[in-house]
Design a protein around this nucleic acid. Structure first.
Lengths: 222, 222, 222, 222
DNA sequence: GATGAATGAGATTTCATTCAT
DNA sequence: GATGAATGAAATCTCATTCAT
């Protein structure tokens, strides 16, 4: 995707060296991602990645010491995308807010594309496992923190078990891709969002939040 | 596990041939499971499985055409355990009912042990993917069916999105192992159960169900 | 060379397993030696060794973890042959004594066959370098010790520099193979022996030792 | 060694092109020698040599068709140094004469530096083997010729085996480096020289030669 | 000429699977 | 049936050499 000018006509005869190398590195990264995602990490060979990127086998090793390092680069390039923005539950209609957050986060995850391979990798690479565990714990903390604030402001069910709900939200978010496989229709983030809101807010609070949001952002998302 | 009585003389022809073979097959299945779970499917070699089961490499191939087939046997042997009993939401305290269902299902899954390897396998084996998808869809249907009944009986929130909630329940159930990794404490099925119930039942219905249950099963779970 | 019965007829249908494996290991060792000697260590591939031994590539790795280990086995099997017997200079005709020692030692070295490759290996494997250096030092010590005794008994030139001569002898011995390449004729150990004796003994002592030897072993080597 | 004056402006076209090229060629030769000697021929890559010489990989191939050719150039550049000057045994004190010849020859060999790698190379390159063999035979001939003259002049032991002694001298000369590894002390060419003289000259002749030398070159080497 | 990225043949090593005993 | 040594295809990785810039 970064090489959208490959085929353009009338451009400079050549890109500066640095850039060409970068381009090749990116092609390899992208090919790696593609193949990891469609065939799995183990099933993908360095040779294949190179071929898919249109370079020779040896070139792969110019840019990456091995397959694992390419994977790590993929993760490092993208891991920050895993962190969703701190949601603010108090202002606005939490349902639509959450829905858009969900959708955005999900989009990020899809772009990352690696969800499908990570479980495989985690088993063989404890370092990676820890790395991912950390990221996950961070997201969990954010969710938990948001819930705490909401609770302290009296917005939630008053017997809300913060940790259990935070965990549930995390899991639902992490799995919101792929519920289309079950029901056949596209993932409806609006509906998931409703489900989550019902876990957190009593109906009256929810209604009230909806109304106040309507005033601030009339017809938004209408 | 390596049977050193092979060479003893004068003992009973202890096990009928058939049974000894069955025993060996089981040892292989178990070894396969152990090693798949702890090292991953790709990382486990047929030789290792055989060694772990105390038989020769070649013997592996007498009982299974290859590694994949052993895996499929594992799944077939255990896949029925994936189907939780049809839950009846209408009778009894749904929270504790659900909690025990959850716990039981989770125990089954742990025994199966393969959750950790399945994602890896699904990528390389579309047949397996379909197989597992089917099982998943079956569970989903059961949940959906139970919710439908509850809704028809006016027990649920009346704007309940059946499919979204069924999906959410499925996801929470599937992931209920491993929430201990986040919060540090053991998975609390009671709490997960509460979260789910809140998605489904309005508080008053829930209270009512709780009371009626108390009458039928006084002091249960007290 | 240990498999001299390969082609014998009328033997048992098969050798016991252990022995067959040993045979294969030996075939690999021998092939390794052959190829190392004729092509050099670096120029020889594991695949070639296997092919030369008549086995598959993988079989090589059943018996040796890699090429280097095969080499080390070769050395360990044969390194004791490097140590010549302690020569006794005082009794007998030193010239013929030395000649036969030389010839024997040379034969051992040829059997070892590795002289030609060792220099190459020593460069890349300091461990091996030390190993061989030790062996060499041991031989040097033996020679030196023999010379010392001879000197103490007043048999040698009285201004003999023991260390220089010991070194010279060692070098001549080590290189006594391959002087045929220069002169065209076969290595004449008798002549080398004479050269060495002249370095050590004055002519009169030498004559005397020759005579006394003649008495003890009349017509020997005549 | 990396010339950072490449980009300086306004300086002399400092070196004529030809000379700059020569300089680069020399840098490559030197780097090749260094690396061959310290790491071995096979273990040294063209890339390394280029990097060590401060030029690009491709430049290597402008000056040498391949690694082998660089080696051959090294040898050709230096091979004439292998030929020691024709020694004249008859005039002067042969011991000190020989000692200085030895030392000089040894210094040449050390400068050449390649003794350590040659055995490796000889195995894979019969052409090289022949080349070196020729040089060696030339030296041998010179030694032999000198001995012949000495013998004809009645200076040597009269039963001297010319060829055996010539060979011995050659071997001792070739190996005179590295006897320090055994005894610990520096190579003592004077002592080696004595050893050789004892092989060639009877003590009385030697004494006489010494005396006559003292007259011609009083206090030399004092 | 010089550069160094790119190439791809070939070496090392692993492992699913076969097969002689 | 059971055994485990043997097989060889395939993966990983290196490096001499070329070639576009």
């Amino acid at each position: 995707m970064p090489d959208h000018d490959d085929l353009m006509i009338g451009e400079f005869p050549s890109l500066p060296k640095q850039e060409r190398a970068q381009q090749k590195r990116n092609a390899l990264l992208e090919s790696g991602l593609d193949l990891f995602v469609s065939n799995g990490y183990e099933q993908t060979t360095a040779k294949e990645i190179a071929a898919h990127a249109g370079v020779a086998t040896g070139t792969f090793y110019r840019y990456f010491s091995d397959k694992r390092q390419l994977l790590m680069s993929l993760l490092e390039d993208k891991i920050d995308k895993l962190l969703p923005p701190e949601p603010s539950w108090m202002s606005g209609n939490p349902e639509s807010l959450l829905a858009s957050l969900l959708e955005a986060h999900n989009k990020r995850l899809s772009e990352l594309g690696l969800q499908r391979v990570l479980p495989e990798l985690v088993l063989k690479d404890p370092g990676l496992a820890e790395f991912l565990g950390d990221a996950r714990r961070k997201i969990y903390s954010r969710i938990l923190f948001g819930l705490k604030q909401a609770k302290e402001n009296g917005l939630t069910w008053n017997d809300l078990d913060l940790e259990a709900v935070a965990w549930a939200i995390l899991v639902l978010v992490e799995n919101s891709h792929g519920n289309d496989k079950l029901s056949g229709k596209r993932t409806d983030f609006q509906e998931i969002s409703k489900v989550i809101c019902r876990m957190v807010f009593p109906p009256d609070v929810l209604e009230q939040l909806r109304v106040s949001d309507e005033k601030n952002n009339p017809k938004f998302n209408g």
